[in-house]
């Protein structure tokens, strides 16, 4: 049962930032070694939404990225493909074509990404366009201005309408936490997004710093934990922006494991929004297999 805004405002807990930082620091002392490291690194690859979201994106760029998405590093057999590619709506059709006959999903940003400063009607059209072109997943942005004006009901209704426009596509709701400024706001926005219909909540557009800090992701994971405890419904999580090393990615997975449990450790429920993470993970995998530290010159950069 979805909660109303007034109920959400009553239930949303306060967040103490220093306490969150301590918890995160403790998670970051976890040591992932041996078999669990190999397994973890492959999980990371399989959870990546390989992303290009630039004004200068071209068909060529998108085509190359799509090939990389299911040929991460052919020198090592049995590597998983990434979970999805993430592109602008105008590139969805192309990506869909390039990735037919693969497991890789097509995610599209929408709702006047990244600022979200457009009327709702435009956002709905934006979303429907992407879905009609074959997007499996929609990454929308919330209206941060409205949120900071205190218009929580507007933010809630907008998400609900976009969810409706998504049809079968899964909806990821980007909070753009770097603009929300406090963890209290991050938590409130998470709860609003979840109750308004998000399938995933996502930290950032990648255009604003700070992006997916562990502190922010932890706060959002706690919202998911509470929702699951209250309703039994799982919500997915996608930190995006700033996660570029294998070590940080593994710490994120540890965090998911400790906060939500092993059930969330699949790309159905957890994703990394990243462009350069895959190659750092590949370097670690190569090191694990060969025993030598790897060089970036041996890994493709599409």
């Amino acid at each position: 049962m979805a909660k109303t805004i007034s109920q959400i405002l009553l239930d949303t807990p306060k967040v103490d930032k220093v306490g969150v930082e301590e918890r995160v620091a403790r998670i970051q002392t976890r040591s992932v070694k041996g078999p669990s490291k190999s397994q973890g690194l492959k999980m990371v690859l399989n959870m990546i939404d390989l992303t290009t979201l630039e004004g200068k994106d071209t068909q060529g760029k998108v085509r190359q990225m799509c090939y990389k998405a299911h040929h991460l590093h052919d020198a090592i057999p049995n590597l998983p493909a990434v979970a999805a590619v993430c592109v602008y709506p105008s590139m969805v059709k192309l990506a869909k074509k390039e990735l037919r006959n693969t497991q890789v999903k097509i995610a599209s940003v929408s709702t006047a990404f990244p600022s979200g400063q457009a009327p709702l009607e435009v956002k709905i059209i934006d979303t429907k366009f992407a879905v009609d072109n074959g997007a499996d997943e929609i990454d929308m942005v919330i209206s941060r201005g409205r949120f900071l004006q205190g218009e929580f009901q507007y933010v809630y209704d907008e998400i609900a309408q976009i969810k409706e426009a998504c049809g079968k596509a899964r909806l990821k709701v980007i909070l753009e936490t770097g603009e929300l400024a406090t963890l209290d706001n991050v938590r409130l926005a998470s709860d609003i997004a979840i109750h308004a219909g998000a399938d995933f909540i996502k930290t950032s557009t990648g255009k604003i710093q700070p992006a997916a800090t562990m502190q922010v992701t932890y706060t959002m994971l706690m919202a998911i934990q509470d929702h699951f405890a209250e309703t039994g419904n799982m919500i997915g999580m996608k930190p995006a922006g700033g996660i570029s090393t294998a070590k940080l990615a593994l710490h994120n997975l540890i965090m998911v494991k400790e906060v939500l449990g092993d059930d969330w450790l699949t790309n159905e429920w957890f994703r990394f929004g990243a462009s350069s993470l895959a190659n750092d993970v590949l370097m670690q995998i190569i090191k694990n297999e060969s025993g030598y530290y790897a060089s970036p010159d041996y890994i493709s950069i599409d």
Binding site: R30, V32, G34, L265
Partner: peptide
């Protein structure tokens, strides 16, 4: 018990 991704010992 029953972990999908158990942490290996890290001594």
């Amino acid at each position: 018990n029953k972990e999908k991704w158990p942490l290996s010992p890290s001594m």
